[in-house]
């Protein structure tokens, strides 16, 4: 059947029915109906508010997550930069030369070449006795202090000190914040809680348990 046929215009006139008798309308809506309506309104309101609350909570959670992820990304980026800086310091020619000299290695200026294919050797290989390039040997004393390791305190009173172990701090965190604080003061003012150069070394080389933000 076509839609045209279905149009209300073409619908046949409904059969006339006897007109119903007029009845007086109820004077007042039933009391129960009013209560139901109020309840409906309340439910709608509560539902709306609840929905809003849920939405807001979810948005806030996402915002928190976003900011914490951002902070984490920044922290990791900083950590990477810190490690790269440490690596760059350890791979400099000066550092390699010093390390090699420390292992008793000396430069060999006598190059020889293996020609491929064929396998003949060009140049004369010979052992060195260490007197060949002494004028290029690394200086005996280390040069300037490491500029990118500000955590090293050259004036640190002593080389042994507590590490900033987050667990230790967490366990030590007294319910009374002042107590924990005073403990820290005593450490800082007296024996010093200084991170030592060893500590810095550890930080540079690993993000292990000495890293307070790692587990904190």
């Amino acid at each position: 059947m076509s839609a045209l046929m279905d149009s209300p215009l073409s619908r046949p006139e409904p059969p006339t029915r006897p007109r119903p008798e007029a009845r007086p309308a109820a004077l007042a809506p039933p009391r129960l109906g009013g209560l139901a309506f109020t309840a409906l309104l309340v439910v709608l309101l509560m539902g709306g508010l609840g929905g809003c609350l849920l939405l807001k909570t979810s948005l806030q959670e996402q915002a928190f997550e976003l900011s914490s992820l951002r902070a984490e990304a920044e922290r990791l980026g900083d950590h990477e930069a810190f490690l790269r800086a440490g690596l760059a310091l350890r791979t400099t020619p000066a550092e390699l030369a010093r390390a090699a000299a420390g292992l008793g290695m000396v430069a060999n200026p006598y190059g020889a070449y293996l020609i491929l294919p064929g396998g003949q050797v060009q140049g004369v290989t010979r052992p060195v006795n260490g007197s060949e390039l002494t004028a290029m040997a690394p200086p005996v004393e280390p040069p300037t202090p490491d500029p990118t390791a500000p955590a090293v305190d050259p004036a640190a009173p002593d080389g042994s000190a507590a590490q900033t172990d987050p667990d230790r701090t967490a366990q030590g965190a007294d319910p009374d914040p002042a107590a924990a604080g005073q403990g820290e003061v005593a450490g800082a003012g007296g024996g010093t809680t200084a991170l030592t150069s060893d500590q810095t070394e550890a930080q540079a080389l690993s993000s292990g348990p000495t890293d307070p933000t790692e587990t904190g």
Binding site: P177, A178, E184, G189, T193, A194
Partner: peptide
């Protein structure tokens, strides 16, 4: 009272941590 005690210790603790992390004079 707790806030007061903590606030009184703040400068000392912070200075100690600064020495620990950055070096320098307490």
């Amino acid at each position: 009272r707790g806030d007061r005690l903590k606030a009184d210790s703040a400068a000392g603790v912070i200075a100690g941590l600064l020495v620990a992390y950055l070096g320098g004079e307490y």
